[in-house]
């Protein structure tokens, strides 16, 4: 764990620490916060704290950028709402857009790039037609990539809107179809929270399960610090609103086969942003990867990160399929 990454996590946990930071600390913290897409969260978290003038200006810049990004995200949600108006099935927002639209604390300070939505799998053909008619276009023309997404992944190949240049990711399951775990996407859609305006998002327990699945069961922990901060914020707010939330969460996690991951995410989030709970060696290894950026925003610990890269692929696909996939990718250069 680099000192600078730990400093950033420490500031998110306890903004009062701000008074102890040197100029060099601030320089490094802001660099990492930008690289991890956490500078908006940091700006929100440090509101009202006494910080050096130069830092205040950088944080103001982040707020300006954030306001723009969130307006854009809301507009993309509105565009999707119109595209699926009258479709007869719910369009469930995922990740950052969902947090913002649901008015959750995890949405404050959250930068959003793409629009992620979850649809029932049997509605994919209809969804594809609607999106293409409304001006979205395929990004990848490559036949293998297209086949790879459709055959094995949990989402359609990415689409970009030709006029607005914004990307939409259409998910139909939670993890790749080849993944050894299969969270119950049908249940997530069925039990989602539908709003009056036609937009939907996951219910609180599923929202956590989805965030955890993406952080710990899929991918190589890239952007992990931000995802873990999301999870921490979500857990805190849901537990505050419902003292029995953990019971609901665990029963939902069991249904999706994610119990171990949800417990691990809770431990990691609590260690980093909460009560400083001690961690076992395996958790510490995850933390080392999540906190691997140095004060220049560069990723360090190449061996740890490579191990997580391999782990991500092994989780995603059976070995022979993985070899075939990597071979085709390598041959294509």
């Amino acid at each position: 764990m680099t000192r600078a990454s730990s400093l950033l996590a420490g500031l998110l946990r306890a903004p009062g620490q701000a008074v102890h930071l040197s100029v060099k600390d601030w320089t490094e913290v802001i660099t990492i916060a930008r690289a991890e897409q956490l500078v908006g969260s940091l700006a929100i978290r440090l509101a009202g704290q006494k910080v050096p003038e130069a830092v205040r200006r950088r944080l103001n810049d982040a707020r300006t950028a954030l306001a723009h990004a969130q307006t854009q995200a809301r507009w993309e949600v509105e565009m999707a709402r119109r595209t699926f108006h009258g479709a007869g099935y719910p369009v469930v927002l995922l990740k950052g857009c969902a947090y913002i639209i649901a008015g959750l604390e995890a949405g404050d300070g959250r930068f959003v790039g793409d629009l992620d939505i979850l649809l029932p799998r049997r509605q994919l053909d209809d969804a594809e037609k609607r999106l293409l008619a409304a001006g979205w276009e395929w990004v990848k023309a490559d036949a293998y990539d297209d086949h790879y997404y459709r055959q094995w992944m949990h989402e359609l190949p990415p689409l970009i809107h030709r006029a607005r240049d914004r990307m939409i990711d259409v998910h139909h399951t939670i993890l790749p179809l080849t993944h050894r775990l299969e969270p119950d996407a049908e249940a997530m859609v069925r039990d989602c929270v539908r709003r009056d305006d036609g937009i939907a998002h996951l219910n609180p327990a599923d929202m956590i399960c989805h965030a955890v699945a993406h952080l710990l069961a899929d991918g190589d922990l890239a952007g992990g610090l931000r995802n873990l901060w999301d999870i921490h914020q979500l857990l805190r707010e849901f537990r505050h609103e419902d003292p029995d939330f953990d019971k609901e969460l665990l029963s939902r996690a069991a249904r999706h086969g994610l119990t171990a991951y949800v417990l691990q995410a809770d431990r990691l989030a609590a260690h980093l942003f909460g009560d400083d709970r001690p961690l076992g060696w395996r958790d510490r290894w995850f933390l080392r990867c999540i906190l691997s950026r140095d004060g220049w925003g560069k990723k360090t610990y190449p061996i740890t990160r490579f191990a997580f890269y391999l782990r991500a692929h092994i989780l995603r696909m059976p070995p022979l399929m993985l070899v075939r996939h990597l071979f085709i990718k390598w041959r294509k250069g």
């Binding site: 100029v23 601030w26 320089t27 802001i30 660099t31 050096p52 130069a54 830092v55 200006r57 950088r58 220049w296 925003g297 560069k298």
Partner: peptide, 12 residues
């Protein structure tokens, strides 16, 4: 040298 920069650049 003793100021928080606006931007960090890396040549690598």
């Amino acid at each position: 040298a003793v100021a928080v920069p606006d931007f960090t650049v890396r040549l690598e």
